[in-house]
Structure formats: C-alpha cells, structure tokens
Design a binder for these strands. Structure first.
Lengths: 233, 233
DNA sequence: CAAATAGTGTCTTTAAGACAATATATA
DNA sequence: TATATATTGTCTTAAAGACACTATTTG
C-alpha cells in the first residue's frame, strides 16, 4: 500500500450525526430529547443521533433521517444541516465531531409514537437552561434555535411545524413562538399571498370567533426567501 | 471495556477539513487551489485541506486555519463554516465526510508567498467549470460562492477581500465581482454610514478622477447584518 | 477644458408596521 | 347583543433604487 493511502498516520476523530427536532405544541416551541441508553452521559437527555452506519447510509443526511425515524417512526417535513461542532473536550472519549441537523415536524405526526415511550420527550425551550443535558447539546440547541429564529424572519419554514392544513392564526402563533415576538398578521397575509406557496382550501374551521380559512402548501413548491426580515422591535 | 465504548462496531467515516479561500484580484473573484501532492487525484487542483491532527488542533476551525496557513503563510481575515459534504462515492477510499469552511483574505497578504510556489494558485471563478478539479470540489466551490453571494447582499463581508484601507469604489467593485451584478453606489454609502463599522481616515488616494476617501474597519467591530438584501435585478 | 471618478441630494419604489374598520362565528 | 377571532383597507415608515447634480483630480 502506498504511503498516500496510509490513513493510520492520523487518528480519525470520532464522528457522529445529531439532530435538533423542533415542533410547535401548546403554542410553544419544543425540542425532541432522548434519554441516553449508553455511556457517556447514560441516563441523561440528549439529542437523537449517533454514528454513521456505512452499510445503511449513503450520506450524512440519511444518517440523520434514519436516527430521527428510529425515535419518531416518521420522516420530518423539513431537514437541513446546521453545522458541525467539534473539539477535544466535548466527548470524554477524545476529539470528536458531531454534524448537527435541525428538523421540523408537525406534532400530530409523532404524537402517538412519543406518548407510548418514556425515553423520548418534547421539551419546552424554556426548560432547557435548567435541564441536565448530555455533551454540549444545550449549546447546540441554542444555536439551532437561533438559526430557526433567523430563518423564520425571511421564510415560511415555520409551516413545517404545523399540520398540513393550517390557518393563518396558527401560523402566526407558530412564528411568534419561534421568535418570541409578536408579528403583524397583515404582514403574514401579504407574504402568504406574495410567496404563492400556498392554496386556500374550500374548508374553514372553528377558531373561537369567525371561521378561519384553511391553507395548505402547494405540492412540490420551493421555499421562498423574502428579501426583507420581519422586524424584531 | 464496556460495550458502550466499543467503537469498532462502526466503521468511522474518513473525515477531512477543506477550505474555499476567496479573494478579489484584478477586480474579479478568485479561489485558492492547490496542486495535490498525494493520491487520490494526485496532480489535480483541489481545495486546501486535509485530515485533522488531534495533536495540533483543538477543533476543526483550527484544522482549517492550520491548512490555510500552510499554503498562504497567513491567517485569513474571515473564516466561517460552510457545510459538510458526505457520501459513499465522493472519495475512492470509501464513505467520507469533508467539513468545508470558506474564508476571505486580501490578496496583498498572500501575494509574495503564492507567487513563489507553483503548486498554489488563485483561480478565477470563471475558469472553474472547465478545470479538472479533485473530488467534488467543483461542486463545493459553487456552494461556497453561492453562500458568499447571499451574504454579500446583507452584510459587509466583502471588505475582508480588500486591504485594510480601502475606498468605497474598491468595495463596490468587490461586491459586484462577487454577486455579478452592478449595485447602487448610494446604497453602499448609506450602509457604510448606518453600520457604523468603518471610520474614514484622514488620507485620500488617487483613483483616476477626484481623490477617494480611505476607510478602514473600526477595531473589534462585529459584522452588521442588514435587514434587507440589496436587490438583484 | 474634457474626461474620469468621487461624493451628495432627492424623488421614487417596495414591502413592512400600525391600526382602524368590517365580517362572522359562539355564548 | 357582547365577545372573540378573522379578514380587509389604508396610511405611515424605513431603506433601497434611480439618477441628476456637484466636486475634484489628471491629462
């Protein structure tokens, strides 16, 4: 074997793939945590993830998806790479790299699955600071939340936290839960119109007052990125 | 050893760190390529990068920086993680992951170093499609360029492709080289003012017409993100 | 002075913010 | 009818686009 191929000269870092799975439940933002079955941090809550399985995964997207499916039994509606986190100290076993994805899913899709087990739980973002979390996963969750907040200002990705039929009120609530700020309903209506991503259904639904129009994503639409952010204030 | 720690049950993917280093040279966007000294793709042009050295690198940022310094002898003014690229087919040696950074540097900082060797070269972005490039690095360069273009619309990062003293005209030219579209000088002036990131020097400099005001970054400023994009057209 | 580039003034345009007004449910 | 929520209308505001106009330098 040529020295060019001598991979043993470098100690390959420990490489894992983890995911921050978000949803909106009870009008607030939740993240999926899993009770760790193995050391290190056995018994603590952590992000769903693990090692790449070269036999099963064509790439890391599939590793992330496979691990999410193991815990929720369904594929999320939205999945995107966040970033890698690495370091000499983040895992007691040595230099490690975790490639982190973040994902959005509607709570209905996973409700029965999650309610039936006690090692998987939706955790409110407000509980995270006080919770003992494995590795640097607390930090990772904060980064994922920041990215989601940013993206909510110039795109419609919060719809992927909702059922596929939803009202403008639900979408408004979801966005406000994500960014922790009220937004103008009118701005949202304008964006729904301008993006051309959605279609109004014939159906309307109860809401406590006037019936609300149901919308759904048009099939196979691309996500529109608006050229301005919603304002924070 | 507990089975929890049995890492041999998984074949750890091949992990590398690569960087797409950009600069502005002759009013156009260039990327730094390195002639590969080793297989695979020995002799082809590729991105600077390589394996993590657990002895030298505290994290992957330092791996990226170390490799860039090896080729240019200086640290870039801007360095940010782009994304990981992975797959079963992108490296003949098997499942591999490369964590890619992109970086910006002023050409003056590296000119003498690069001119003195023949295995490192600034390549114009327009040459990339016709060039034989190692691995999936052509695809990676396109992704890095897209990210840089996007970011140029709502931030001032193109200044990191310039010398630390620069004129508005130079910055305008740099942005236009990155996004391949003309922009309004007035918009740029307004952003320089609004961002409060820069200070005008006492000095002015020749430009072919009226003398141009020199600016520099204020020390330790954070990069401002504007709430709107410059328009494409 | 002509040409070139720098810098300013200002009107227009675009899309969001603010919020009033109207519509339609339920108790 | 009172209340709650949905929907629409429209005026204001913020920041970019367009582009004319002035300023300053060199040949």
């Amino acid at each position: 074997m040529s020295p060019d191929y001598d991979l043993t000269q470098y100690q390959n870092p420990l490489f894992t793939v983890d995911s921050v799975l978000f949803t909106i439940l009870q009008d607030s933002l939740k993240v999926l945590l899993v009770k760790r079955a193995n050391a290190p941090f056995k018994g603590r809550w952590g992000l769903p993830g693990g090692f790449v399985d070269v036999e099963l995964d064509d790439n890391t997207d599939m590793s992330a998806l496979r691990k999410i499916k193991e815990k929720t039994s369904v594929a999320p509606q939205y999945l995107e790479q966040l970033q890698a986190f690495s370091g000499i100290n983040r895992d007691p076993r040595g230099f490690s790299v975790t490639l982190v994805y973040y994902a959005l899913i509607s709570p209905q899709q996973v409700a029965t699955q999650i309610d039936s087990v006690d090692d998987v739980r939706w955790v409110d973002l407000s509980e995270i600071p006080d919770l003992a979390v494995a590795f640097d996963h607390k930090h990772i969750i904060e980064k994922a939340k920041a990215r989601l907040q940013q993206k909510a200002l110039y795109s419609m990705i919060p719809v992927y936290c909702l059922p596929d039929q939803f009202t403008i009120g639900q979408l408004k609530t979801a966005i406000e839960a994500i960014i922790s700020k009220p937004i103008q309903r009118k701005s949202l209506v304008r964006r729904i119109e301008a993006s051309n991503m959605f279609e109004a259904l014939d159906e309307k639904v109860k809401s406590g007052g006037r019936l609300a129009q149901l919308y759904k994503l048009k099939p196979d639409v691309d996500i529109v990125h608006f050229e301005r952010n919603l304002s924070l204030g």
